[in-house]
Design a binder for these strands. Sequence first.
DNA 1: ACGATATGAATGAATG
DNA 2: CATTCATTCATATCGT
Lengths: 207, 207
Amino acid sequence: MELQQQQHQQQQPDEDNNGGGKGSFLCRQTSTRWTPTADQVRILKELYYIKGVRSPNGAEIQQISARLRKYGKIEGKNVFYWFQNHKARERQKKIFTNEVPMQQRTAWKPEDYYSYKYSNRFSSSFANTGAVTVGQRDFHGYGSVTMQEKTFWDCPVPAPGGSNIGAGGGSMMSNTNYGSGISYTVFDQEQEADAEIETLPLFPMHG
Amino acid sequence: MELQQQQHQQQQPDEDNNGGGKGSFLCRQTSTRWTPTADQVRILKELYYIKGVRSPNGAEIQQISARLRKYGKIEGKNVFYWFQNHKARERQKKIFTNEVPMQQRTAWKPEDYYSYKYSNRFSSSFANTGAVTVGQRDFHGYGSVTMQEKTFWDCPVPAPGGSNIGAGGGSMMSNTNYGSGISYTVFDQEQEADAEIETLPLFPMHG
DNA sequence: ACGATATGAATGAATG
DNA sequence: CATTCATTCATATCGT
């Protein structure tokens, strides 16, 4: 895996209208399942790791999917599932690697953020697009919001029989933002026109 | 084409191939996917066929992987995937063996697979009228299909950027809001963003 | 070398 | 949320 981007996905913002409703000519081109575009994944991860979104509610899902729609066909449920899965797998990974009693759901300390990541060429050096205002409720303590990315559980155990993983720094600013609307206006400005997909992966993985 | 399958590689049963201490330029994480050793496969199958293990949980996975580690490098996820795949493929094989007239199974091609695939619960094929119908009963045809209803994913969100006075999907649930406390009241809706309401499908849901 | 196959890995979609 | 199913991609390995 590493850098080999990969996987299956294209479907740029261009409309592919597969669900057109008509009898898709027997072609099975109509992939039944949503295949996020690179940009969509990027944004989703930003929301997840940077903004700390974990379980968006209906309204948020709508906004998110509306935003992502600029990069490709997408429905609300896709966003919903994406977050569900992403969170679940992050958790799962943790269990498999070492079922460390995941508790200490107290306040995380800044140090947690810096927890080194695994040795990877790509570190999380995301060009923080100046995100500033963040408003996201949904506390998600769990002391570790593993910001590491690539794909879950990937790094092999370094030492023989050793326990590894350093769980990465998270990001999340669970500042209980009650009532205020959603402030997804943070780095709302992604290249609308999508001039050039900066494949600069803050998060290498493909997703 | 009975079972001439499996068992290809061997890989030195001993030795943790890579990741070892010295790591012969093996910094790359999992550059190569896990290739179970013969012993590992044997044990895994014993667990699967004899002990009936199908979906080991976190603890079991760790246990198993710990045991298999004696025979070669392995991670929890490998065990997890192994069972997932093994079960899935066994299931698949069974389908092709039973659901197809036991005759010309001389050599089916992967394309044949695509014949089964039962429908999805909900189809997202027809454009909805935009009406806010709430409970979509759907055709269900397979014994235990859960009935689904419209879920909150697709509930329209008020205006983009607009102040959402009351009602509307003004995301304002406190973080401690368990259960989907969707509260948007359905008062008229408007297509936000994108004037192209392509097939906004009725969503399924799990109550 | 290649192509087919087996299977590891990833992840969307559901269900409970 | 936890679990599981379904699909699909990627690749190790083998047959020819």
